[in-house]
Design a protein around this nucleic acid. Structure first.
Length: 270
DNA sequence: ATGGTCGCGAGGCGA
């Protein structure tokens, strides 16, 4: 069965409920990986998905982070946090597992909805956390393929990394201002997934330059076309072999009440 | 105009 899978950082599911509803309606996706739900189970809009025939699994601990998977092709073996997922506590105090990863098997695909730590600044303690988090995730993903080389795995989410210079509107601006998302350690952490056998399933169908998935709310970044490509669907070899198309729903970034991220959709053949 | 925008939740943090 041909399926469509998508990832979208909604920046609050409650604030974006109507937009998510409309997106499901028009996109016809079978699986949606959501990031930044910004809620707990108590105030998660379950009916939004159930009314449309989707099963949904959520992992949210507080008003920050929060990840979910909605699927109408099955939802098995839900897993909250991956093996050896690092913890974080500001100033090293009270380190806790954050709600940044949820996995489930949907239609034979091991789907992970991922919200990679931001890093905040190059010299912030959040940056080593980000790098360690990615290293541990890569370890988990590589283990999946060692156990089952033909496994269909989709690592989908907000990676908070722009892997190539063309993935930001002006690399010199980022370099000059010592900005995150483009540093070599971050890029190496991303490319390690490719070395482990994973492929960016959307890029071949959405070539740059000037193609982005995120635009900052400030400084008129969207109308000025100053964005970043930081949301990705990385597929294992068996999944990559099924990819037939992809699109970035840039229209979703327009208008009042938009998330700062656009959905990334990947089409898979039988 | 040395900021400019969001969301959460009720002041400041996170992005």
């Amino acid at each position: 069965m041909a399926v469509k899978i998508a990832t979208w950082n909604v920046n609050s599911l409650r604030a974006r409920a109507d937009r998510v509803d409309a997106f499901l309606q028009r996109s016809d996706v079978d699986v949606l990986a959501i990031q930044e739900t910004k809620c707990k189970d108590d105030n998660f809009p379950w009916e939004l998905f159930e009314n449309k025939g989707y099963e949904v699994a959520h992992f949210g601990l507080n008003q920050w982070n929060g990840v979910a998977i909605a699927s109408r092709v099955g939802m098995e073996d839900v897993q909250r946090t991956f093996v050896d997922q690092p913890t974080f506590g500001k100033g090293g105090k009270n380190p806790t597992q954050e709600a940044r990863a949820i996995g489930a098997t949907c239609g034979g695909i091991r789907v992970w909805s991922l919200y990679v730590p931001n890093g905040r600044s190059l010299d912030d303690e959040h940056m080593p956390y980000k790098l360690l988090w990615l290293s541990a995730l890569k370890g988990h993903a590589a283990t999946l393929l060692e156990k089952e080389p033909e496994a269909q795995v989709a690592l989908m989410g907000d990676w908070n990394i722009a892997p190539f210079d063309d993935d930001v509107w002006d690399i010199e601006y980022f370099r000059t201002n010592l900005m995150t998302h483009v540093s070599e350690p971050e890029r190496e952490a991303f490319h390690a997934f490719e070395e482990a056998g994973f492929t960016d399933l959307a890029r071949a169908y959405t070539p740059g330059p000037g193609v982005y998935t995120y635009w900052d709310y400030t400084q008129l970044r969207f109308p000025k076309k100053e964005g970043m490509r930081i949301d990705f669907v990385l597929g294992s070899p068996a999944l990559a072999a099924r990819a037939t198309g992809a699109m970035i729903d840039r229209e979703e970034r327009k208008g009042k009440g938009a998330s700062d991220h656009a959905p990334v959709i990947v089409e898979l053949a039988d």
